[in-house]
Simulated scan of single mutants.
Amino acid sequence: MRSLFKKVALPSLLLFSSTTAIFVVGTGNAQATYHNNHNYSYCGSGSSNSSGNQNSSCNSALGEHTYDLVEDGVYQSTNANDSSISIDGVSISLAAFSDTQGVYNETVVGADLEKISNQWAYGVTNNDEAIYSGNSDHAIDNLNYNYQGSNAAYRSGTTNVERDYDFVLLSFDQAVTLTGASFSWLYDSNDSQISVAALGNTSTLTSGVNTWSDIVADALTSASFDIENCETLDHRADFTFTESSQYWLVGAYNTVFGNIGGYVGNDAFKLANIGFSTTETQAPPAPTEVTEPGTLGLLMACSLFVMWRRKKSI
């Protein structure tokens, strides 16, 4: 049985800096970061756990393969080919991103993927957390924001809100289909959504000049899903994708990925498990070509026909 408490060395991660147009190298042997300044409840601090919304189907398998971020460990990079994390022969690496290129700018740049604890799994801290209003500053969330205008204008809804959207990029060394995800913690257990997209490559994401809208426009597919409130510790979302890709974005509900009518601004979670499938749909076999009779076959057929006519005429 694999230990839940093994230490994982996190290698360097190349990401576009949020403040300058250069690449920076992260800490080579980062340790898990623990946050104790928030009192989080089992289902979330934003709302109480309602048994009416619990769904026992959450106990079913996430997919053909399940990647447990805590038990299996995390390799931080956008390149899975160098990763030491392998699930059933598939190498996986992770990186974090958020639209935090400046306070009033929606450009997507690199963020910090952080292990909260063995219980609470992984979240994201972006570059604007310290100066933004909101909370859940180390969850994968869309709660944190900045606004232009007075507090009265903000409360009345007459001012523009600049909201951050945190996402995690999962890179695989082969094309896979994401089938689901589970979460160790939700901010709101009654109304939480998640957005997901498959990318053909990471160039649009890592360029440091694009918004989430630009990235989704270049994606292979994207969608948003409801997160179920489970009876067990982990909550979950089931995906319905049929496409395969090496690169998948998973993050806080953003309507440009797919608008399913959920409330934006109360979505925050800690990512615990990812379900994926490597089974590809087999194309039906091509029809077998029927070759025309060869010369020998044709002569034999003709001979039999002549013999039959001669016998019939006798």
Rank of each mutant, 00 (worst) to 15 (best):
G261C: 09
I22P: 00
W248C: 02
P11G: 11
F23C: 10
W248L: 02
L62R: 02
T100A: 11
G63P: 01
Y40P: 04
Y263N: 15
A219I: 00
E64Q: 14
T281H: 15
M300P: 00
Q174G: 08
I140T: 05
S41W: 07
T206L: 00
K312I: 09
I140C: 04
T20Y: 08
S303C: 13
S84I: 10
Y132E: 08
S150G: 12
N55Q: 11
A252E: 03
A197N: 07
R236D: 04
L205D: 01
L94Y: 08
A223Q: 13
T206N: 05
Q174A: 06
T125I: 15
A30N: 08
L298R: 14
P287A: 09
I260P: 07
V196H: 06
Y122K: 01
T295V: 14
D141F: 07
N53M: 11
A32Q: 12
N118K: 09
N160H: 14
S150H: 11
H35P: 05
T295Q: 15
C58H: 01
T232D: 12
A223S: 14
A96T: 01
M300H: 02
G265I: 00
V176M: 04
L69W: 04
K7P: 04
V161M: 06
P285Q: 14
V256I: 13
S83G: 09
F269C: 03
S57Y: 05
L186W: 04
D226P: 09
S77R: 03
G294S: 14
E129A: 15
A197Y: 00
S222F: 01
Y42K: 13
A139H: 03
G275A: 10
A252H: 04
L69F: 09
H38K: 14
F305H: 11
L296M: 15
G157F: 05
D88T: 07
L15Y: 12
G149Q: 07
E106F: 05
S60F: 10
V256E: 08
T255N: 11
F241A: 07
Y253E: 01
T33A: 11
S195L: 03
N127Y: 08
D267F: 10
A111G: 05
A181H: 04
D112P: 05
N229Q: 12
D173S: 06
E289P: 10
N144T: 15
V176W: 02
Y145C: 08
S48G: 14
Y75H: 13
T125H: 10
N105K: 06
Y40M: 12
N201M: 05
S222P: 06
V196Y: 06
